[in-house]
């Protein structure tokens, strides 16, 4: 019941799924709901479930905003715990833990790495599309380590699904691009 109230509150506040607050945007999701360590949440229909473990995530290009989304979840769970009381008037409690999985980054288009990347795409006959990704990349950590890093595609399509396939034209272009990048004077 605490979980249901908390999630209803999160949804009502506009913090579930795609989150837009003014100019700031992000996403959030609620993942597995279990009894912890692979057990189901709850044991029987005639026993009030006394333990539930829930995992989720918050994402944004704005470093402060994804923490704000996470905080909205924390507040909702804490409020919900206080609202559900048993016959003796005692409420439940929650233990909420969050950690940063990876940090957002956005490199300036004037950086040498970006200029070299865009020029090499043009040199092999392509039209560079400057973009930002909505998922984490190894580049997130390289940039954090102080190595400015541009990411290119190499032909993968519909990854993480049973419909995955490879576009060999893009793979070949990625190979040509690598040789171009390595030999540009």
């Amino acid at each position: 019941m605490i979980l249901a109230l908390a999630l209803a509150d999160v949804k009502a506040g506009g913090w579930f799924g795609k989150v837009v607050k003014g100019k700031r945007q992000g996403t959030s999701n609620v993942g597995p709901v279990t009894g912890g360590d692979g057990r189901p949440a709850g044991d029987a229909t005639n026993v009030v479930t006394d333990y539930v473990h829930v995992r989720g995530e918050s994402r944004s290009h704005d470093a402060k905003f994804f923490k704000e989304i996470t905080k909205a979840y924390k507040t909702a769970f804490e409020k919900a715990a206080k609202r559900v009381k048993n016959s003796e008037g005692k409420s439940g409690r929650v233990k909420f833990k969050a950690e940063t999985d990876y940090y957002p980054f956005r490199m300036k288009e004037s950086l040498p790495v970006v200029k070299r990347a865009a020029a090499a795409v043009s040199d092999i006959g392509g039209t560079p599309t400057i973009r930002a990704a909505n998922g984490g990349l190894d580049a997130n950590w390289m940039v954090r380590h102080g190595v400015p890093t541009v990411t290119f595609g190499a032909g993968q399509n519909e990854p993480h699904t049973t419909d995955e396939w490879i576009n060999l034209d893009e793979y070949d272009r990625a190979c040509a691009l690598a040789v171009q990048l390595a030999t540009t004077r």
Binding site: R59, P104, A133
Partner: peptide, 23 residues
């Protein structure tokens, strides 16, 4: 500087990405 290969199109020049919390 570094060039990372992970994605679909070789013309996509990805210069930023989201950050995330897991809770």
């Amino acid at each position: 500087m570094a060039f990372n290969y992970d994605g679909g199109s070789a013309s996509n020049v990805t210069i930023g990405a989201v950050g995330a919390d897991r809770w």
